[in-house]
């Protein structure tokens, strides 16, 4: 506590016990440091997601009601997930783009498990707003995909960043097809 400011009250240098006491004091101080570290950890850890929060971290989505060309937004871990049933034309357009032109180069194939189903976390990689483009009436940006109204990021039909401040493509969450018409996200 006050140790660092108090120099004079230390014992006279060169006293015979000085080394032994220094060693003792040093180990005691080291112990105190370990103790403080061990006390701090549970507090920090308690702010991480609790076990019930982690247990809720998967969401199942039924794909049957989503017609071709339509999209739904589902909630997963408190965030929107875009699930889009793409038309053949949208798939073709997305695959025609040369990967070298992209800011965050990824092929469309690497972003989907089944060609028509695009599943992405609907959170702009710039500063976390939700891009427009899910509803048929939404503005879909210059690349007919999604458009983030906060700071003007344009994503294409594969959710890849094409224009604007966002650094990376819209993230693809971990998901599995339980049946051809049902997926589990997370």
């Amino acid at each position: 506590m006050a140790d660092m400011a108090t120099q004079p009250s230390a014992p006279p240098a060169g006293a015979p016990q000085a080394t032994k006491r220094d060693f003792l004091a040093l180990s005691a101080t080291a112990f105190a440091a370990v103790g403080v570290g061990a006390i701090v950890w549970p507090f920090i850890s308690s702010m991480n997601p609790a076990r019930d929060v982690l247990a809720m971290a998967s969401t199942e989505v039924d794909l049957t009601p989503i017609a071709t060309g339509m999209a739904v937004t589902v909630m997963w871990r408190g965030k929107p997930v875009f699930v889009r049933n793409r038309t053949a034309e949208e798939i073709a357009t997305a695959r025609a783009v040369p990967v070298s032109e992209l800011r965050d180069p990824q092929t469309d194939q690497s972003r989907v498990q089944r060609d028509n189903w695009l599943v992405m976390v609907g959170v702009c990689t710039h500063l976390g707003c939700v891009p427009l483009g899910q509803r048929p009436t939404d503005v879909r940006g210059d690349y007919s995909g999604w458009f983030c109204p906060c700071h003007g990021s344009h994503y294409d039909g594969s959710g890849r960043i094409r224009k604007g401040p966002a650094p990376t493509n819209l993230a693809v969450p971990q998901y599995t097809f339980l049946t051809p018409t049902q997926i589990r996200i997370g």
Binding site: P42, F43, S45, S46, N48, A50, R51, D52, V53
Partner: peptide, 9 residues
């Protein structure tokens, strides 16, 4: 039960 080290705190 669920919060990390919650029982301890």
């Amino acid at each position: 039960r669920d919060v990390n080290y919650g029982w301890l705190i």
